[in-house]
Amino acid sequence: MISLQHVSRSFDGGRSFAVHDVSVEIADHQFVSVIGGSGSGKTTLLKTINRLTEPDSGRVTVAGKPAAAEAPHALRRRIGYAFQGIGLFPHMNVAENISITPRLLNWSEADIRARVEELVDLVSLPRGFLARMPSELSGGQQQRVGVARSLAARPSIMLMDEPFGALDPITRDTLGTEYRRLHDQMSLTTVMVTHDVMEAVLLSDRILVMRRGEIVADGEPQALLDGHPDEEVRALLDTPRRQAERVRMLLGNRAHSE
């Protein structure tokens, strides 16, 4: 379980807050999406969980243990992290990139090799890619490697920051669906920040909507789609519904004309 209690973070010495007094609990094996406009604080909130951002106040607990109680690097080795920039190490090949965290944890060479092969299969990359350099891969292939790298040390928690945001729509859809399958298969707890409401609705068990550093809506996708007292939240979640209806109408019209 991940638990945030009264977490606040300001980047200008307290004049304004990126995250303001947020408390939320995320149960094991949940797939939670965080949505909201840019600057709403969703990325900052995500990064307080693996201490890429330190909260100014409040308390973050990961699997029953205060995050602040251990060294940040040790904490991060237990938590997978994938983000839009991907950040593959350009001087390491695919196998070396994927195996980096197990190596930091001093796994044996045999365990590392077995795990790397298992992971390229899981993210549907050919084994022949292991010796390639990141610059030789397409964007979608790079993010597959990025996801494999974040899963390498068998974390139980995955943090994802717009992981598929820079990819073309088809790749984005494929990777999203495949990741959801991995989430279920490995019983992961996933927190994913996205600006794509449709993606959030289709993939997650639960959606958090943020505005100006605060959580303004929290619920299952279906419940939020059914309506919410907050007007902006309603408008935000109306978008996928309206899009879906327009697509259905287009398809319906075509069916009639044929």
Partner: peptide, 18 residues
């Protein structure tokens, strides 16, 4: 160095020295 690479290095759990 690309900031994304630095962020990834921190994210995978490297110490400052590593």
């Amino acid at each position: 160095i690309d900031p994304a690479v630095i962020e990834a290095a921190r994210g995978v759990g490297m110490t400052d020295r590593q």
